[in-house]
Measured scan of single mutants.
Amino acid sequence: VTLFVALYDYEAITEDDLSFHKGEKFQILNSSEGDWWEARSLTTGETGYIPSNYVAPVD
């Protein structure tokens, strides 16, 4: 499982989006939707859509 880490803070715009803070880690559930990925936060356990350009793979 490839994990991703937030590079910036993000505040949800719609109820389907997931708010997060810089440094938060995610498991990507679906990355086939283009620039918005469905993800689960490993910090909160919540799922929602995140902007793919706000995250990077964890080394």
Rank of each mutant, 00 (worst) to 15 (best):
L7K: 06
L7F: 03
R40I: 14
S41L: 08
V5Q: 07
L29P: 04
G34Q: 11
E33W: 12
Y8N: 07
P57K: 08
T14P: 03
K25H: 14
D35A: 10
F20G: 01
V55P: 00
D9E: 06
S52F: 08
A6D: 00
I28P: 03
V1S: 14
N53A: 12
E38T: 10
G23T: 02
V55L: 15
Y49H: 08
A56E: 10
T47F: 07
P57T: 06
E46I: 10
I13L: 13
Y10Q: 02
T44V: 01
L7D: 01
V58P: 04
D59C: 08
F20N: 00
V58K: 04
E46C: 08
F26P: 00
V55S: 01
L7N: 03
H21R: 14
G45P: 01
K25G: 04
A12E: 02
L3K: 05
V58E: 11
D17F: 15
I28S: 01
E15Q: 12
G45I: 01
Y10K: 03
N53C: 08
V55Q: 01
T14N: 15
S41Y: 03
D17M: 14
D16P: 05
G34N: 11
T47N: 05
L29A: 05
Y8R: 10
H21D: 05
F20C: 03
N53Q: 10
F26L: 09
L7W: 03
E38S: 07
G45T: 04
F26D: 00
F4V: 14
T47R: 10
D9N: 10
T47M: 09
D16L: 12
K25D: 02
L3G: 03
I28A: 03
Y54I: 06
E11G: 06
A12R: 07
W36M: 14
F26W: 01
A6G: 04
T44K: 03
I13Q: 13
T44I: 02
E38V: 13
S31R: 11
I50G: 00
F26Q: 00
W36P: 06
H21G: 09
V55T: 03
E33C: 09
T44Y: 03
V5R: 04
I50M: 02
F26V: 03
N30P: 04
D17G: 15
N53Y: 10
A56Q: 11
G45S: 05
N30Q: 09
E38Y: 15
Y49T: 07
D16W: 15
E11I: 15
N30T: 08
N53I: 11
E24W: 10
G48A: 03
V1M: 14
K25V: 14
G23F: 05
W36I: 08
S32T: 12
S31N: 13
T43I: 09
A56T: 12
I50L: 07
V1N: 15
E24H: 07
T43G: 07
S52K: 15
N30E: 08
A12F: 02
T44A: 02
T43Q: 08
L7V: 07
Q27I: 14
D35C: 08
G48Q: 02
E24C: 04
D17V: 14
D35Y: 13
V5D: 02
Y10G: 01
S19F: 03
S41V: 06
S31Q: 14
F4K: 02
E11S: 11
D59H: 13
E46T: 08
A39C: 05
W36F: 11
H21L: 11
V58S: 08
G23L: 03
G23C: 05
Y10W: 12
Y54F: 11
I28E: 00
I13S: 14
E11A: 11
T14I: 06
E38Q: 14
E11P: 04
E38L: 15
A39E: 00
T43C: 08
L3F: 10
D59S: 12
Y54N: 04
E46W: 08
S52M: 10
L18I: 13
P57Q: 08
P57A: 11
P57V: 08
K22N: 04
S41F: 03
G45F: 08
D59P: 14
Y10R: 06
I13E: 11
S52A: 15
D35E: 14
W37P: 01
L42N: 05
E38M: 15
V55F: 10
V5K: 04
G34S: 13
